[in-house]
Design a protein around this nucleic acid. Structure first.
Length: 571
RNA sequence: GGGCGAGUAGCUCAGUUGGUUAGAGCAGAGCGCUCAUAACGCUUUGGUCGCAGGUUCGAGUCCUGCCUCGCCUACCA
């Protein structure tokens, strides 16, 4: 059977991520991974922190700790939070791992050997007081075109004019505010992606089924007027992967490191090796996922990311792989996401606007967030998070439709038949029609998930939950009970089987709750989804003991909603 | 400026290659049920599919122009 390799875009290290970051890659990739495992595919699900670059260094300076300590701390925090959101990574690695050092240096050497790397001298702004070269965006000044005073070195936000840092009037460092800036010459390695343009174009043309978002962004870059530009893959920084060729320092690059966007995607591979090393597996165990001549030919590789990451995954990283001349696995499918907005505006870390992953978990269980985010995933356009929508979706879908179904079935059962599961399984016509109805939706759900249609899948799952309530209404065990208690037993038994089914097939979406349900009712935790629903819905044995579970989804009250609306509106 | 995308019921969105009376959820209205987290089920009111032209026997769907909104535009990552 085909194997599926899934990677989630690497979250940047400098802080706790917000809900937009979560729905941009980790969460949808997790649902996909869980679902594909449940369909019986062998899945490897990989992520890692992206730890290098200027922002990480600055964040560490601000906290007054060494940057590697800072990263280690943030890595374990991010890992812990992902865990609390039930993200089922097989491995959550780090781009700063030794494995990634080795592999990144390996790729650079191969690229050099094949003529895809060039050393180029360029001029950059150096800040004497900060003691470092400044990325263009870390320089502000007055825009020469519109006189806007906070124009950045790469572009003026006010008039959108593209700028060079040297264009700015009165430029200063955003780090220290210092105006002691000078232009210095510095040498960098450039990845000559322009030489691979035709190959990339051809390759991309074979990806007919890719989402519009991914393809159009990639094509934009390939067909840019000025052509596909070569890209610097080194920086004048100390925190990062040392620039080495064949194992020794690259002459002239003693004080430089590889640029994050060169080493970050390579970390997908390196994190897989980390996983294999950590479990003391053979070399072949990670290579069979990544090298096409060692098994990866039959792997389907799917990447999840937000739209800002697409150029790196459709151009630079594939160029790196092609340029290496080795048999590395290229991505087969890219699932890109638009932005999540917060109450009509942007999430903002600096203004404390919006909801961050750690805070979210203080307010509500992970499944509340998972469900809203998945049901509203920004697949086709930016999506707005509003508390009103959150409240109504959770209360309606989770509390009223699913949670209440479980309550009504279990309390009826306990009050009429005690703590044993009713033993009549002579299903009649209505039960058979109900099974058929579910089968249709279940079939749709599987197709939709295979196509990674997240929102539509949620809709389909919700329809399956609704069928439970429809069934109960029509079967009306409470009236049947008066005349024919035996038949009423059968109805409740069937309904309990439905709960068992729901706990199983909803697991990719709301794993925490599903586990709770399975634990409470002592349902068998199957690893795979049933192929035959009719059979599955006879599964419960007479031995099961049941009781009424605590409310699974307490509702979000109006008071809570308006309080949180206030609390998270920013400063 | 250039590129991309979106504009469909009060709200959030579906609408495959153009084909009969444009769909769903929420919200609203009515009815039913009483097992349940005042929950559930059924029925139902809302749309000249952004605007103006065009192609066609036939257009939400294709073409042209226009309007509005969003995103991207390569040294944040």
């Amino acid at each position: 059977m085909k194997r599926i390799l899934i990677t989630s875009a690497l979250p940047y290290i400098n802080g706790v991520k917000h809900l937009g970051n979560l729905i941009g890659s980790q969460l949808p990739s997790d649902v996909y991974a869980r679902f594909m495992r449940a369909l019986g595919f062998e899945v490897l699900f990989i992520c890692a922190t992206d730890e290098h670059g200027t922002p990480a260094e600055l964040a560490a300076i601000e906290k007054n700790i060494p940057v590697d300590d800072f990263c280690k701390e943030m890595w374990s925090l991010q890992k812990e939070i992902a865990d609390h959101f039930h993200i089922s990574f097989d491995h959550f690695g780090r781009s700063s791992s030794q494995q990634n050092h080795n592999l990144t240096q390996h790729f650079a050497s191969r690229l050099w050997e094949n003529g895809f790397i060039e050393e180029i001298e360029e001029e950059q702004v150096y800040s004497l007081d900060d003691n470092r070269f400044l990325p263009d965006r870390y320089i502000t000044g007055t825009c020469p075109a519109c006189a806007y005073e906070k124009a950045r070195g790469d572009q003026c936000e006010n008039c959108t004019k593209q700028l060079n840092p040297t264009d700015l009037i009165n430029p200063k460092s955003t780090i220290s505010g210092s105006k002691s800036l000078e232009i210095r010459t510095t040498k960098h390695l450039f990845l000559k992606q322009s030489m691979l343009k035709d190959r990339l174009t051809k390759w991309l043309d074979t990806k007919e089924k890719w989402p519009l978002l991914a393809k159009s962004i990639a094509k934009k870059w390939l067909n840019a007027k000025e052509g596909l530009k070569d890209r610097a893959i080194t920086r004048d920084l100390s925190w990062g992967i040392p620039v080495k060729k064949y194992g020794s320092i690259w002459p002239g690059f003693e004080n430089k490191v590889f640029y994050v966007w060169f080493d970050a995607p390579i970390a997908y591979i390196a994190a897989t090796k980390e996983w294999s090393d950590e479990h003391k597996l053979k070399e072949s165990s990670w290579k069979r996922w990544w090298l096409t001549d060692q098994g990866a030919g039959e792997v389907s590789y799917v990447q999840f990311m937000a739209k800002d990451n697409i150029p790196f995954h459709t151009i630079s990283f594939p160029a790196t792989i092609f340029g290496s001349g080795e048999n590395w696995k290229q991505v087969d499918f890219i699932k890109g996401f638009n932005w999540l907005l917060y109450e009509g505006g942007k999430f903002s870390t600096s203004e404390k606007r919006g909801i961050f992953m750690d805070k979210a978990l203080d307010l509500y269980p992970a499944d509340y967030w998972r469900w809203w985010l998945l049901a509203n995933a920004p697949e086709n356009s930016d999506t707005d998070f509003t508390w009103e929508s959150f409240q109504s979706t959770i209360n309606k879908d989770l509390a009223d439709i699913l949670g209440n179904f479980i309550s009504r079935v279990s309390s009826f059962s306990v009050s009429k038949f005690g703590h044993r599961i009713p033993d009549n399984n002579q299903y009649g016509k209505l039960e058979k029609t109900t099974i058929r109805k579910i089968e249709i939706h279940y079939g749709h759900l599987i197709e939709l998930m295979k196509g990674i249609e997240i929102r539509k899948s949620c809709n389909e799952l919700r329809s399956i939950w609704v069928i439970g309530n429809e069934y109960l209404q029509e079967a009306a065990p409470w009236s049947v009970f008066k005349e024919n208690p035996e038949k009423s037993k059968m109805i409740i038994r069937f309904a309990l089987n439905l709960i068992n089914l729901y706990a199983l097939i909803s697991e990719p979406f709301i794993p925490g709750t599903c586990k709770k349900i399975q634990d409470h009712f002592q349902f068998t935790k199957l690893k795979k989804f049933p192929e035959n629903l009719g059979l599955f819905l006879h599964n419960l044995s007479n031995k099961h003991e049941i009781s009424v579970p605590k409310i699974l989804f307490p509702k979000i009250t109006d008071e809570e909603r308006s309080k949180y609306q206030q609390d998270f509106s920013g400063c």
